[in-house]
Design a protein around this nucleic acid. Structure first.
Lengths: 197, 197
DNA sequence: GTCTATACATCGATAGAC
DNA sequence: GTCTATCGATGTATAGAC
């Protein structure tokens, strides 16, 4: 994150700065959910956290930098979600658990889902630092899939399409519910059966 | 469409009006692709078609009305795409053909895909008139699916997730290519085999 | 149907005082 | 680190002349 000041990790001033930044980021998500990611405005954001609009530039170099921080934060939350849980020793079960976790995560916040997996803001490209967090998640998924026999690129592409499709329908047509989430097991079983046939 | 003037269908003035409206709509898509749907601006749109910004209100009551017209037009294109072609007498083949057509349609224009199938603009709800075009498409898909044994709601939900997932991945990760499009047959076969097992 | 003029709000970003 | 002040641009929408 380019706007991070150079300071020791235990510097109380740096800690205070980080806390403020975190609070601003949190409010940015609230506003993005309300108005749409592309309509997020720095003026309203500043107002919401009790600052004047120019003061935000202490925390973010630009609006693009703010988007980048949101992208990184969302991916860290996703990583925390899939990395914190333990997975079954049965590889197929582990893939199902992983998929359920991802779909639930996506359904929990459609706006976050949009920023992480779709391209709602033309011109926005995550910085390499932010993207590296996303890669960690993708590698975890790839490893779990490989354990269940999903190794060929072609099969990985099908797997990602299955996960994306369930998440997409859940978010778009039943946000907050579980109409598609509960289909995860059946879909993944269908796919793994096909692979082992 | 609320802003349509009352006039006989053969009225040359109405025809001229419709032609202008169509041209504006076309340019609106160009700008939406460039800047994002949420960033579409009436001023730039007017400039692009050689009008002053207030003149657009002759053709659209509001920006929401413009979005609604775009939604309707996109759905009419989709309908033209799936209704114009003939489908195999083999029900399973017909479903594959339909799915390929839908995925190709989505991949051809990510922005159109976004407006039709995702919710990129908080607060935008299509008018009943516009949505009726979308329903025609959904019913066609439902009928074709039913012919291949996809009748239970649960199975229809899986089917829509499969189509959405392939389209989603194709649009997001290989726009203009066919990396996921070419997986349609395998995925649909897998699903139909499962149903008939 | 198109225009000028304008209202009124908001936008992202920078300069410089404190 | 936060502020005031401000730039220059852009946003949607309306009034009223032609």
């Amino acid at each position: 994150m380019p706007s991070e000041p150079v300071a020791d990790r235990t510097d109380p001033r740096a800690a205070r700065h980080a806390r403020s930044r975190s609070k601003i980021l949190e409010e940015a998500w609230v506003l993005a959910r309300r108005h749409g990611l592309g309509r997020l405005s720095l003026g309203e954001l500043a107002r919401s956290v009790g600052l004047r609009q120019p003061s935000l530039y202490t925390y973010f170099d630009s609006k693009a930098d703010l988007y980048d921080a949101m992208f990184a934060q969302g991916n860290e939350q996703l990583w925390a979600e899939v990395a914190s849980r333990s997975y079954s020793e049965h590889p197929g079960e582990a893939v199902k658990e992983f998929t359920r976790a991802v779909v639930a995560f996506c359904a929990a916040d459609p706006t976050r889902f949009q920023l992480l997996f779709q391209r709602p803001i033309p011109g926005f490209e995550p910085s390499p630092e932010s993207y590296s967090v996303a890669l960690r998640f993708l590698e975890r998924g790839r490893d779990l899939a490989a354990g269940a026999g999903i190794t060929r690129q072609r099969d990985m592409d099908i797997f990602t399409a299955l996960v994306a499709g369930i998440a997409d329908q859940q978010v778009a047509n039943d946000p907050g519910g579980d109409r598609w989430l509960r289909l995860v097991d059946e879909v993944i079983e269908m796919f793994l059966d096909r692979l082992n046939a």
